[in-house]
Structure formats: structure tokens, C-alpha cells
């Protein structure tokens, strides 16, 4: 099934529908954050710090009197932006490594996969902490850390797809007709291997949002006053007794988004009927 049709049909399943609505909403919030937000995300008013939710401030205010609702809207842009960008890069790199390894086979395969497996050996959080120690904190290095941390799984998945496809008769026929390696790889193998990798990437985006939040907790992610959801929660830890909403709402935003991504991704896997192919990595 074409991926476009599958996206729609997944959104019509009982599981996919609510998830799709949430995701469309989050993306909408991320894109139009500056129009939707009632206040600027960095506007402080120390006299109005830690106010509970009210008509003026739908979700209350934080320790600097900033409007939480506005910050969560802008946070959607940053958290989603970082997660999508870095997972996008991770998928692209993984595809390149995996495709070359799977297609070339032999020592090239072994060498490439050994390199990839070195990152696979460490928990993502450790890779991220060490890389950020080298690069310095900030959104850019967070993105690099996430990209490297998740790359191994895409490379392995892509490689498995390519190896499986390589054995198919039509590919062997194409080789027989004298097609070049680049032609076979780019026109036949990669497009067919793409779908499962993209879906895996989509699922990983949820994990990436959580990883960004954790890095934010260690003070390493988005630098203030930029409001990523993780950074907001990390700042809220000190206030959690006085003003629980400061930490509860960003946490909910993360949980709802990530669950929606997973449910929708699951529905999509069923719609595309690629559950088996996903497991091959």
C-alpha cells in the first residue's frame, strides 16, 4: 500500500483516529505557536510568579511569572522540532550506512556494522551525555546526540531490508539486464526498504522527545529562556511542591504526544502490513 493511502487509513482506525487528531493538533500548535500564544514565551512578571491556572493564564504561570500555556505552545515547536530534525538526520544516516552495508556485503558490511554497533552498545542517554560534554550544551548538540544515539537501529533495519530485497528475483533480473549498482540501489532497493525505516523513525521520534526532556533535566538541552518541554520540567522540579502545575503540564504534553505518536505508528504499521519487516533489524 502506498504510504500516503496508509497514513489516511491508519487515521481511520479506532486507535489511530484519536492519535491522529492529537498529532495534527500538536503540529498545528508548533507551527502557529506565535499566533496562538496569548503572551510572549519569555515575558517575565516576577510579581505574578507561580500563579495557579486561571482565566488570564489558562495553565498558570511559572517561577518568573511567564504564561505556561504560551510556553507549552512554543515548547511544542522546540521539542518536536529537535526530535523530528534529529531523527530525520538519524534515519538518513542509518539508511546510507545500512544500504551500503547490506548491498556491498563482505568486509565493507562487517566494518560498517561494527562501527554502527559501537553506538548500539551504549544506552542512548550515555551517548548523549558524553557527546554533549564534548560539544557543549545547547539545542544543536542535543540534536547531534540524538542523531548518533538512535542511528544504529535504523542502520540495522535498513540493512536487513536491503539484504532481504537483494535476493528477490526481480532484482536479480535487473542485475542480469546490466543495470549499474547505483541504479539498483537507488531506484529499486532503497525505495522499497524505505517504508519500514520511516515508520521506525516515526516511533523513535517519541523516544527522542523523552531523551530531549531528560537532557533538559540535566540542564543540557535547550538553553533558557527557550521553552522545550524538557527544559520546562527541569526548571519546574524546584517548584513542584509550591506550584505543581509548572511540572505537571509539560509532563502531560510529553506523555500525550508520545503516546499519540506510538498509537498512530502502531496503526500505521498495521495499515502497511510491515510488522514482520520491522522486526528484521
Amino acid at each position: 500500500m502506498a504510504i500516503g493511502t496508509a497514513l489516511l487509513s491508519a487515521a481511520r482506525t479506532p486507535r489511530g483516529a484519536p492519535a491522529a487528531i492529537v498529532l495534527v493538533g500538536v503540529v498545528f500548535a508548533a507551527i502557529f505557536a506565535d499566533r496562538l500564544a496569548p503572551y510572549a514565551y519569555d515575558m517575565q512578571s516576577l510579581m505574578q510568579a507561580n500563579l495557579p491556572p486561571s482565566a488570564a493564564h489558562l495553565l498558570g504561570t511559572d517561577e518568573f511569572g511567564r504564561d505556561l500555556f504560551s510556553r507549552i505552545l512554543h515548547g511544542a515547536r522546540i521539542s518536536l522540532g529537535v526530535a523530528v530534525t534529529s531523527i530525520g538526520a538519524s534515519v538518513a544516516l542509518g539508511l546510507v550506512f545500512g544500504a551500503i552495508a547490506g548491498y556491498a556485503g563482505g568486509w565493507a558490511d562487517r566494518l560498517l556494522m561494527a562501527v554502527v554497533d559501537l553506538t548500539w552498545a551504549f544506552p542512548e542517554i550515555l551517548i548523549a551525555l558524553v557527546l554533549i560534554a564534548i560539544l557543549g550544551p545547547g539545542l544543536g548538540s542535543t540534536a547531534v546526540a540524538i542523531t548518533v544515539g538512535y542511528m544504529a537501529q535504523f542502520a540495522r533495519l535498513a540493512r536487513a531490508q536491503i539484504i532481504a530485497l537483494k535476493g528477490e528475483t526481480y532484482i536479480e533480473a535487473t542485475v542480469g539486464l546490466g543495470a549499474g549498482h547505483a541504479h539498483i540501489l537507488l531506484r529499486h532497493l532503497v525505495p522499497n526498504a524505505l517504508t519500514p525505516v520511516l515508520v521506525a523513525g516515526m516511533l523513535a521520534t517519541g523516544d527522542a522527545i523523552v531523551l530531549e526532556a531528560t537532557l533538559g533535566y540535566f540542564g543540557l538541552g535547550a538553553q533558557p529562556p527557550l521553552p522545550s518541554w524538557g527544559a520546562m520540567m527541569s526548571a519546574g522540579v524546584g517548584q513542584m511542591f509550591l506550584a505543581p502545575w509548572v511540572i505537571v503540564f509539560p509532563g502531560l504534553a510529553i506523555a500525550i504526544t508520545v503516546v499519540a505518536i506510538n498509537l498512530y505508528g502502531d496503526a500505521l504499521i498495521d495499515a502497511l502490513q510491515i510488522r514482520n519487516r520491522l522486526r528484521e533489524g
Binding site: V210, A213, T214, Y217, M240, I254, A255, V259
Partner: peptide
């Protein structure tokens, strides 16, 4: 099936520092 799986999914997707602090509380 649906409620349990969704509940567990939600729990597992919360950042662990947040969950930890909540557990302590």
C-alpha cells in the same frame, strides 16, 4: 487489552526523572 496497554505505554513514556520524583512524592 486496550486500557492496560495504553496505560502501560503512557507510564513508560514519561521521562524517568519525572516519574522518579512522582514516586518519591
Amino acid at each position: 487489552d486496550r486500557v492496560v496497554m495504553a496505560g502501560i505505554l503512557m507510564g513508560s513514556m514519561l521521562p524517568s526523572f519525572w516519574l522518579g520524583l512522582l514516586m518519591i512524592l
